[in-house]
């Protein structure tokens, strides 16, 4: 099948395929260049970026769990000023659209980040992270309250004219209300899910393993929860959903698409197999050909009753 069977438009962003490199797992897009051409992605979302530089959490920051990974990076990043001055100019080298994931400690920080990125040509859109489980202020504490989410997204929307994606957590318990609030406030798309808070205890030391005690769970262990979240949210809102959580291969991506994802993001799988975007594209094309479809778009939400 030709490559055009995977072409996608999400929140007005034209992408060669519906695969997105998930925030925090792909740096600024350059680190995997020795392994694979970054242009093979539909889009890349860069590491969570904050108004001021952040040191991040003390190590250890990672621990493996059954079919999963707990991370507590704590949004280590050089801050938006550094990004705009040094990283922005290099982004066109990547050869695919790049989105910036932003995280604030206050509503005003989110608004200022959005204003600073407004009109920046090298940035295709924003992903507003209201769901980071690894920082004390901001992050997930915003993402659980639909009224607060509405307020936050309204402020970002006023400050930023380009494509706006809001990233949700399942932690809220009411992900559908949060999704509806974000959409009402003007989000062009939603991405879900962020990691879920977990813990591992070292029984020899009788202490939590991670320096931050808790961390966010990603990888295959998260997948069924994420597929369910996409299923619920995509039926409740009219904007496209970017699904993620434990996608390792084409079959996993297909689950998300059939549940209602218009695109899928891939994080942890890159650590295991840097060729994963290419392999999933090939796998999706094979599935389309084998099952008599001409474009992946025909599969979106096809698992829903009545489809």
């Amino acid at each position: 099948m030709s490559d055009s069977c995977l072409s996608a438009t999400i929140a007005g962003i034209t992408m060669a395929n519906p695969l997105v490199a998930a925030s925090g797992c792909y740096g600024y897009g350059f680190d995997y260049r020795h392994c694979i051409d970054p242009a093979c992605w539909g889009a890349i979302v860069v590491k969570g970026t904050t108004l001021h530089p952040r040191l991040g959490n003390p190590p250890p920051r990672l621990v493996e769990t059954p079919s999963g990974l707990l991370n507590a990076i704590g949004l280590q990043n050089p801050g938006i000023a550094y990004f705009l001055k040094y990283i922005r100019v290099r982004l066109p080298e990547l050869g695919c659209p790049v989105l910036v994931n932003i995280a604030g400690e206050t509503l005003d920080e989110y608004r200022r980040l959005a204003a600073l990125l407004n009109g920046v040509d090298e940035v295709a859109g924003l992903e507003v992270n209201i769901s980071c489980p690894n920082v004390k202020k901001g992050g997930i504490s915003f993402g659980c309250d639909p009224a607060l989410v509405y307020e936050l997204v309204c402020r970002v929307r006023e400050a930023y004219r380009g494509p706006l994606i809001v990233k949700l957590s399942l932690e809220a318990g009411n992900i559908v209300s949060v999704a509806e609030a974000a959409t009402r406030a003007g989000a062009d798309a939603l991405s879900l899910i962020n990691t879920i808070k977990g813990m591992v205890i070292d029984v020899q030391k009788r202490r939590p393993v991670l320096g931050n005690s808790t961390g966010g769970l990603s990888g295959p262990a998260l997948r069924p929860l994420a597929v369910r979240a996409v299923w619920e949210v995509s039926q409740a809102v009219s904007v496209p959903v970017i699904g993620m959580g434990g996608i390792m291969q084409a079959e996993d991506a297909l689950q998300f698409i059939l549940a209602g994802s218009a695109a899928v993001a891939i994080g942890t799988a890159n650590f295991v197999n840097p060729a994963v975007p290419k392999e999933i594209c090939d796998g999706l094309k094979r599935y389309l050909a084998d099952n008599g479809f001409t474009h992946y778009r025909e599969l979106i939400g096809l698992a829903r009753p009545g489809s």
Binding site: G27, D31, Y32, C35, R61, L62, E64, Q76, F271
Partner: peptide
């Protein structure tokens, strides 16, 4: 030594102070 996820510098998981 450190626990590593990506090993290419992308995830910031393996840091030492």
């Amino acid at each position: 030594e450190s626990l590593m996820a990506c090993a290419v510098g992308a995830c910031l998981g393996c840091v030492f102070p």
